Amino acid sequence: MTQSQPTVTPKLEEPKFGFSEYAERLNGRAAMIGFALTLVIEYATGQGVLEWLGLG
C-alpha cells in the first residue's frame, strides 16, 4: 500500500509576537542606526560613549 501525498500546502499565519522575519529585520535595522549614530556622536563631540554618558 502506498500513501498518497498531500496536494495542498497549508498556509501558515505570521506569528503575532516572538521571533519572526519582520521583527528580526526591524531589530537589525534599529541596531545599525544606533551604531551609526554612536559613531557620529563620538566624532562630533570628541568623546567616547562612556565619557558622553558621564561614566568614564
Results as ranks from 00 to 15, higher is better:
1 M>H: 08
2 T>V: 09
2 T>S: 10
3 Q>E: 06
4 S>E: 08
4 S>W: 02
5 Q>T: 15
6 P>L: 10
7 T>G: 08
7 T>P: 00
7 T>W: 03
8 V>T: 14
8 V>E: 11
8 V>M: 06
8 V>P: 00
9 T>Y: 05
9 T>W: 05
9 T>G: 07
11 K>Q: 13
11 K>I: 11
12 L>C: 01
12 L>A: 06
13 E>D: 12
13 E>V: 06
15 P>N: 05
15 P>F: 03
16 K>S: 14
16 K>G: 06
17 F>G: 00
17 F>R: 08
18 G>M: 04
18 G>P: 04
19 F>A: 11
19 F>C: 00
19 F>P: 01
20 S>A: 07
21 E>L: 11
21 E>M: 08
21 E>K: 14
22 Y>V: 14
22 Y>C: 01
23 A>S: 15
23 A>G: 06
23 A>N: 14
24 E>L: 11
25 R>N: 01
26 L>T: 12
26 L>Q: 12
28 G>F: 02
29 R>N: 08
31 A>G: 01
32 M>H: 04
32 M>T: 04
32 M>K: 13
33 I>D: 07
34 G>Q: 08
34 G>A: 11
34 G>S: 10
35 F>N: 09
35 F>S: 11
36 A>F: 02
36 A>D: 03
36 A>V: 07
38 T>S: 14
39 L>I: 15
39 L>N: 15
40 V>N: 01
40 V>G: 00
41 I>D: 08
41 I>Q: 09
41 I>V: 14
41 I>L: 12
42 E>W: 07
43 Y>D: 13
43 Y>W: 10
44 A>G: 05
44 A>D: 03
44 A>T: 10
45 T>H: 08
46 G>F: 01
46 G>E: 00
46 G>I: 01
47 Q>V: 01
47 Q>G: 00
48 G>A: 09
48 G>S: 15
48 G>D: 13
49 V>A: 08
49 V>M: 09
50 L>T: 12
50 L>C: 08
50 L>H: 05
50 L>G: 14
51 E>R: 13
51 E>K: 15
51 E>D: 12
52 W>S: 14
52 W>V: 05
52 W>L: 04
52 W>R: 04
53 L>I: 11
54 G>W: 02
56 G>I: 00
56 G>Q: 01
56 G>R: 05
56 G>F: 00
56 G>K: 07
